[in-house]
Nucleic acid binder design. Structure first.
Lengths: 164, 164
DNA sequence: AAAGATTGAGTTATCAATCTTC
DNA sequence: GAAGATTGATAACTCAATCTTT
């Protein structure tokens, strides 16, 4: 669906017309981020579909792959991924049903459960990551300079939001 | 939940360690966009909650408010908002239940249905927009220069994705 | 009482299939 | 047959409430 005009620039024009000058740049920027997210998410899901993975589950898998012991408490995963704990319960349920992950008891705290990669999980994560690199991350559709600027600006935003 | 380090910079470091140098900047940029989306969405939903609106429904309302006749075919709304038609059916169902919107038949094409704002819908949209401007768009947490740069870079991305 | 995890309810999104009208 | 919209199924997220363990 290609439009004959930039819909966000059009919205910004509307904002200006209503004398919301102070809000127009912020509105345009925020809306642009929403649309960029939508574009990237669609591409990512396309890449991951053959592996029977969603982006949410892919994030859990990569986090486990890069963690020191290949296993993490569910709450820790939620903190790192900045989502609700129940989302992780759900994601791990599905990953466990796919035999990519197993829940194991915490060695010293019986309340805590660890999610750990299985052999199959480690394998699919490697293959899916390779696919994501090739199909999305290596060619986002922006110049190196733009990528660096984008990261830099959004890092300030994340900093201001208290991420780190 | 504040971490002692920047989780995305940490992920980029992992990518470098695995010799995925060509993918690291793209991964960091894409992941940053995802997190920025998450931050903005949470803020927006907080602002809209008192009006009993979600961001998805707010988008439909503002589109109708700014359309010439205050009413649009459902398919047109889906095209402009770049979402699936069924999402609009669902959103309009709820907006209609809230009496913010009414479905009316298309004057010449019986297949098409128009979604139009009610008086209450027009009012809540105005109030919600004012709140969104004050609480989010007027102070995104970035400088004017950053906002402009962000918009400019993401416009190139949207252009490359075929949005306009 | 507090922390970790899960269950159930409610919302939103997509997809496939269906229905009506052109 | 194609276009516009809806219905039913599925996935994911959040929230409130609950259960177990500390």
């Amino acid at each position: 669906m290609t439009l004959a005009f930039d819909p966000i620039a059009e919205a910004r024009r509307q904002w200006e017309e209503h004398d919301w000058h102070a809000s127009a740049p912020g509105m345009a920027a925020v809306t642009s981020v929403f649309r960029a997210h939508q574009i990237f998410l669609a591409r990512a899901e396309d890449v991951l579909a053959p592996f029977e993975l969603t982006f949410a589950r892919f994030e859990v898998l990569t986090l486990l792959l890069f963690s020191t012991h290949g296993a993490l408490p569910l709450g820790k995963i939620a903190d790192r991924l900045q989502v609700h704990r129940t989302s992780i319960t759900n994601a791990v349920d599905r990953l466990e049903a796919q035999a990519f992950v197993v829940r194991t008891p915490h060695p010293t705290d019986a309340r805590t459960r660890l999610a750990g990669l299985t052999k199959a999980g480690r394998e699919v994560t490697r293959r899916a990551t390779t696919a994501m690199n090739a199909a999305l991350f290596e060619d986002v559709g922006l110049s190196s300079r733009d990528l660096a600027t984008l990261f830099s600006i959004l890092r300030r935003l994340r900093r201001a939001a208290g991420d780190f």
